[in-house]
Nucleic acid binder design. Structure first.
Lengths: 185, 185
DNA sequence: TATGTATGAATGAATG
DNA sequence: CATTCATTCATACATA
């Protein structure tokens, strides 16, 4: 976990603000990302940084990190993985898009693209009074017992990482299981 | 931040908001969280997700996020209001924004300012309230052409999604802590 | 309806 | 390159 641990910012800045790519920088970065499949070379990073610095403060490290994160996260569908679906709030309908990259909002967009729930009650504000889902009524019901089998397996999650690292780093497929979102294996 | 814009549902307006764990799901999650102090492995996440899906729609990402947040906030709670420790720093979360970056208007825009992705972006129209810097408004100006030499060729129409991020601030203070990040080049 | 709080989700950065 | 952490943003929900 990252602490900045940098005393140089203590005397003036009240808070460390992490770099945030400007729209222009983002556009350029995305463009470059599309071209190559991997992280650019060091020289390339420098070129990119120099170019991006025209549009805002930036450093090589920022660029490098961006590409690393971008690559690491491009494997999981950022739209699907993040959202899941609404369950209790919705009527029960759920949409499942199969898009991968052409989706407008693969990245965090401001409220610009989002549909407005206002004016169209999707929450059921007017009818919420009497539409409890079964789970609500039995949140402590014996149902829970069916979950216990998981707890047993999960009792020692820490031991697994030791076993998991034994000799399968090479055979471990890195890019086929692109459904991951970055967990410990 | 939320990103759930789905062009495929347009007329239905049943966009997924964000996942909200049902009481049962929450019960299970907290139970598991108690068992292991760390984030479960990929496989465990899948198991958990499968189990939780019996009580409502859910995805691996939801579970993963939940554990991440749980862990992060568990630590934060102890500092903020838990053990009477001397380290009673600010909430951290709510808002500690000091002065510079956030005031530029990068933050959430009033709902009245929302721009639509359709055809004409309203960058010029929305500037009235937030008044971003002129540089930001030139995101499509000839300036950009200077980037092309790095990229070689442009051919992606996907760039349009970036319009949504226009109008951000761009001057930040960066700590000069820059290590060698070990690139291939 | 307006405001405050809790928390799901996104992401830059750090660690291994 | 993979995983984890810390911070921040946005929103569901409670409250007034």
């Amino acid at each position: 976990g990252g602490l900045y641990a940098d005393p140089t910012i203590g005397h003036k800045m009240t808070a460390r603000q992490r770099w945030t790519p400007t729209p222009v920088q983002l556009q350029i970065l995305e463009r470059i990302f599309d071209q190559g499949t991997g992280t650019p070379s060091k020289q390339k990073i420098k070129d990119i940084t120099e170019e991006l610095s025209q549009h805002g403060q930036i450093s090589d490290q920022n660029v490098y990190n961006w590409f690393q994160n971008r690559r690491a996260r491009s494997k999981r569908k950022q739209h699907g993985g993040g959202g899941g679906s609404s369950n209790n709030n919705n009527n029960g309908e759920s949409e499942v898009e199969t898009e991968t990259e052409t989706l407008n909002g693969k990245r965090k967009l401001p409220e610009s693209l989002r549909v407005l729930p206002d004016g169209n009650n999707a929450i059921g504000t007017t009818t919420t009074a009497t539409s409890p889902r079964p789970e609500d009524l039995c949140f402590q019901s014996p149902e829970m017992s069916s979950d216990l089998h998981l707890l047993g397996v999960l009792s020692n999650p820490r031991d697994e990482h030791l076993v998991g690292k034994m000799g399968l780093s090479e055979s471990y497929n890195l890019y086929d299981h692109v459904e991951d979102y970055g967990m410990s294996g």
